[in-house]
Simulated scan of single mutants.
Amino acid sequence: MIKIAVVGSAGRMGQTIIESINQNDKVSLGIALDKGDDLNAVLDQFDVLIDFTRPEATLDYLKICQQAEKSIVIGTTGFDDAGLELINNAAKNIPVVFAPNMSVGVNLTLKLLDMAAKVIGEDADIEIVEAHHRYKVDAPSGTALKMGEVVANALGRDLSQCAVYGREGIEEPRDRQTIGFSTIRGGDVVGEHTVSFFMEGERVEITHKASSRMTFANGAVRASSWLEGQSAGLYSMQNVLDL
């Protein structure tokens, strides 16, 4: 049975992951750690580590996993380019599942967005709106950015060049080649994302709403189980779900 280490175990997400592990008969909780605990001291107690903490902490755990040749599932968001490069480099030595959203539903949504963009994207103004709880610190969400990336790639665009983050004041008419992002923060919203394709006379909207963190936790545990026997490499939930 696969033994999982959970870091950030005292937080809301950490507690939900532990609950998901306890409900799954294919895995077991090897060790739960929080701030101040030494991962190096418990390397013999787990096979895979699940991390939904902060970028700086994740990179510390990643380095230890790389040195110990342990697999890791990363659900943390908000990495800068240097952090992303460290994740890519680590994946040359160990199996890494890295996804901004572990939800099965969100990853199915990404597939639908790819299809929609290829069919109607060139004829549409595309806007992405996301909402999360008041405590979320990065904006737009990693999931919103991933949705934008999927749409941009399907249309042969570079998201870093075509993304527009918020609007204010008097502007030129909207450029159809851009992809707009809007962010909402408040209350206890777990996560809501809508991608709208605005065409002349009609609009297509693809929406995902999460009402429980258990959706993310279950996906992360599923990814941990999938990693068994995988060779070193950088994987996404699309790989885990065979999408």
Rank of each mutant, 00 (worst) to 15 (best):
A217W: 07
K111V: 10
M13G: 04
E168T: 11
G186C: 06
L145N: 02
I72D: 06
V195W: 01
I120F: 01
S182P: 01
T183G: 02
M147F: 11
R134K: 11
N89S: 15
A217I: 12
A139M: 08
M147K: 07
K63F: 13
G186I: 03
D123V: 02
I4G: 02
V27Y: 03
N153H: 13
E19C: 03
N24E: 10
F52Y: 15
G83W: 14
N88K: 15
E228I: 14
T178E: 11
P173A: 08
A152M: 10
V204Q: 12
A223F: 02
N218C: 08
V150K: 00
L113R: 01
D81W: 13
A82W: 13
L59A: 13
R167G: 00
T58C: 15
A5R: 00
I2W: 02
L86C: 14
I64W: 12
L145W: 03
E19Q: 12
A220G: 13
C65H: 03
P55F: 13
S211F: 09
Q67I: 14
G156P: 04
S225R: 08
A154N: 09
T109D: 05
E85T: 15
V129Q: 06
D158G: 06
V97T: 09
V189Q: 09
L159Q: 07
A124P: 01
V42N: 11
N88F: 07
H193P: 01
V221P: 09
I179K: 05
V119Q: 07
L112A: 06
V104W: 04
N107F: 03
L86R: 15
F98H: 14
T178V: 04
G219Q: 05
V190Y: 03
G156N: 10
G166H: 08
L110I: 05
L49F: 06
D188R: 09
T215I: 15
F52R: 02
K26H: 05
D80F: 15
G156W: 11
V104C: 04
D47R: 07
M102C: 07
N22T: 03
Q67C: 10
I126R: 01
E168A: 12
